[in-house]
């Protein structure tokens, strides 16, 4: 993960796309939820919603 964050930092500096930071953080969180739930991407939210 540290390697990814380092690469991502270099990428952001080169491309100057700072707005990608919150998107990537959200996606990482989303991905982690997905991995923890072991199922579909939306399953962690189903019980919260219904």
């Amino acid at each position: 993960m540290l390697e990814f964050l380092g690469d991502f930092w270099k990428f952001l500096k080169a491309r100057r796309k700072w707005w990608l930071v919150p998107v990537v953080l959200a996606l990482l969180l989303f991905g982690a939820l997905f991995l923890l739930s072991g199922g579909s991407a939306v399953s962690p939210f189903i019980y919260t919603l219904f």
Binding site: F4, D7, L27, G31
Partner: peptide
Amino acid sequence: FLSAAPVWVGEKMLLKR
């Protein structure tokens, strides 16, 4: 987007890993 996002995390963002 919702269905593809987890795949991107695994396959694009963490590709080196």
